[in-house]
Amino acid sequence: MMGEEFLSLEPIVVAVILAMAAATIVTKVGGLWLLSRFDVSDRVEAGLSVLPGAIVVALLGPELAKGGPAEWGAAAVVVLVMWRTENILLALVAGVIAVVAFRSIG
């Protein structure tokens, strides 16, 4: 019956999912846990202070590089709207509309 197949929970599948969850939780709490356990020198702290921007740029660079003119143009729209309005929602909406529009042109 279809309902059974929809709701079935095989023990081995559940075990793998729980192992994935455990691995993910280790990554999510691990960095902060390490920081709270050990005293960090101001030199290391200087390195950590650039992390937010560095992660953003490291995630974004290859993402945009594998896109095309439509994505680059839409990213420029987000920068412009964000810079002029400082309204993140407006910037996101403008970016998504721009990417759809630019893709339909390209």
Binding site: G53, V57, L59, G61, G67, E71, M82, A91, G95
Partner: peptide
């Protein structure tokens, strides 16, 4: 599919903190 990139572009605009940001960002990029 562009929402995640857009969120990060917007965040980059806010995290930009003048010329001291430039070197680490170029290294990361």
């Amino acid at each position: 599919d562009f929402i995640l990139a857009a969120v990060f572009v917007a965040l980059a605009v806010e995290l930009w903190d003048g010329s001291s940001t430039l070197l680490p960002w170029l290294v990361a990029l």
